[in-house]
């Protein structure tokens, strides 16, 4: 049976969450294994949210933030990107490939791009196989 990765997507409610909503309503290939987690701003993303997602069984975590200079709260997207970079480096150090963590900029209108990104991301996580944290001890 094909490996179906569990993916958590943290989406800013001012952009990607709306794009995801539109993409879902259009019913045009939205992968069912993507779990959306709505954030009031990508700046609300905490490092621990990402780590907990992996602890709870995620094989990949995607972060969607508003485009540069488009954050409703001015710099939330910049802060989110910095935290993602920091967390990626931490994941590598503990034996989880940083490619399992992806960061994207998106506007609420780009629902087709959202679909492309999650489909491509889905395939890349499939290629990496199950996250090593899922190994039973």
């Amino acid at each position: 049976m094909d490996f179906m990765p569990a993916i958590v997507a943290f989406c800013c409610e001012n952009s990607a969450f709306r794009a995801a909503d539109t993409a879902g309503a259009k019913q045009e290939g939205y992968p069912s294994n993507i779990k959306i987690c709505r954030l009031p701003c990508s700046g609300k993303l905490e490092i621990n949210y990402i780590l907990r997602a992996f602890e709870e069984g995620a094989d990949g975590v995607f972060i969607f933030a508003c485009h540069p200079d488009s954050c409703k709260f001015l710099k939330g997207n910049v802060r989110a990107q910095k935290r993602v970079e920091h967390t990626g480096a931490l994941l590598e150090k503990i034996g989880i490939k940083k490619e399992r963590l992806r960061f994207f900029y998106l506007s609420e209108l780009e629902w087709t791009k959202f679909l492309d990104l999650v489909q491509q991301g889905n395939e890349s996580i499939k290629g990496l196989g199950p996250c090593p944290t899922k190994v039973k001890v």
């Binding site: 931490l90 994941l91 989880i96």
Partner: peptide, 10 residues
């Protein structure tokens, strides 16, 4: 959280 993940990987 990082320690729990690291030990699971190991």
């Amino acid at each position: 959280s990082a320690l729990r993940l690291a030990f699971r990987v190991q």
